[in-house]
Amino acid sequence: MTKLSVNINKIAVVRNSRGGNLPDVVRAATSIERFGADGITVHPRPDARHIRYDDVRDLKRALTTELNIEGNPIPEFVSLVLETVPAQVTLVPDAHDAITSNAGWDTVRHRAFLTDVTARFHAQGIRVSIFVDPDPAMVAGAAACGADRVELYTEAYARRYPADPAAAVEPYLAAAEEARRQGLGLNAGHDLSLDNLRFFVQRIPWTDEVSIGHALISDALYYGLENTVQLYRRELITAK
């Protein structure tokens, strides 16, 4: 079954809005694990506006499922990943002032850089996923960089889904097929929700993992955190 990794950045946003440690992101993450998630995703940014570098260190000590650290591989980020040695690192080309990730890598233009960073993480046994737009050429480029997986940036899918689900998923299916041809694992994330998740996985059943944060944490305000994790797992189960 496609695995569910829950991005807990938004929980850290609430904590940071008041200072202190309420809500406790480590407690939330271990609860999410207990509720059935397969992993936890964090995206520490240089401005520490949500997850902080020390949060990553604390989470690595506390988690029993996979930790996935996302981010732009600036020197400070690379050092953090090499120190904490998560199960997976997802390389995302976001600018320091981006509200959220808004584009995938040009894996052809940045091949030398991505190849070097990937090799450094592989030397520590860390699985490397590269965040890409649904473009077969960028998927093939990620394979050429030595990546283990790609994560398809699904914002466009989520935006187009209400009007025409089949058309929305079409470029993602082409990119996913290229990933399979290249021998790459396949992740997906950004704006996936209870509304559009099942259809995506039904059409691309070899998706290894979805990373979901904003929609899931928002739904938890209405349904409760435990119930919400189960609702997302149910979408993945019934997609098969």
Rank of each mutant, 00 (worst) to 15 (best):
T2A: 03
K3P: 03
V6K: 00
K10S: 08
I11W: 05
I11C: 05
V13I: 13
S17W: 04
G19P: 03
N21H: 13
N21V: 11
L22W: 12
D24M: 10
D24N: 15
V26N: 05
A28C: 14
A29F: 07
I32G: 13
E33Y: 14
F35Y: 14
F35T: 01
G36R: 00
G39H: 09
G39L: 12
G39F: 13
I40F: 06
V42E: 00
R45L: 06
P46H: 01
D47M: 02
A48W: 01
R49P: 03
H50W: 04
H50E: 11
I51R: 03
I51S: 04
V56C: 07
V56P: 00
D58W: 11
D58I: 00
K60H: 14
K60Y: 08
L67A: 11
L67Y: 14
N68I: 02
G71K: 02
N72M: 00
N72T: 00
P73V: 03
P75A: 02
P75K: 02
F77A: 00
F77Y: 11
F77K: 00
F77L: 00
V81F: 04
L82K: 10
E83I: 05
T84M: 04
V85I: 13
Q88I: 15
T90E: 03
V92Y: 06
P93A: 07
P93Y: 09
H96M: 07
A98M: 04
S101V: 01
N102C: 11
G104E: 01
G104L: 06
W105T: 01
V108H: 09
H110M: 11
H110L: 14
H110Q: 10
H110C: 08
L114V: 10
R120H: 13
F121D: 09
H122T: 09
H122V: 05
G125N: 09
V128Y: 04
V128D: 06
V128G: 06
S129W: 10
S129R: 05
V132D: 01
D133T: 09
P134K: 07
P134R: 02
P136Y: 08
P136A: 03
A137N: 06
M138W: 06
V139A: 10
G141N: 02
A142I: 05
C145W: 12
L152V: 08
A156S: 09
Y157D: 07
Y161A: 08
A163Q: 13
P165R: 08
P165Y: 09
A166F: 12
A166M: 10
A167M: 06
A167R: 11
A168T: 01
V169L: 08
P171R: 13
P171W: 13
A174H: 13
A174E: 14
A175G: 02
A176H: 08
A179K: 06
G183W: 03
G183L: 02
G185Q: 02
G185A: 04
L186V: 00
N187R: 11
N187F: 15
A188H: 01
L192W: 12
D195Y: 05
N196C: 10
N196R: 05
L197W: 14
L197D: 08
R198G: 11
V201Y: 07
V201C: 14
Q202D: 06
T207G: 07
E209T: 15
E209I: 11
V210L: 12
S211G: 12
I212Y: 07
I212N: 05
A220S: 15
A220M: 14
L225A: 14
Q230H: 15
L231N: 06
Y232S: 13
R233N: 15
E235L: 12
A239N: 09
A239D: 07
K240W: 03
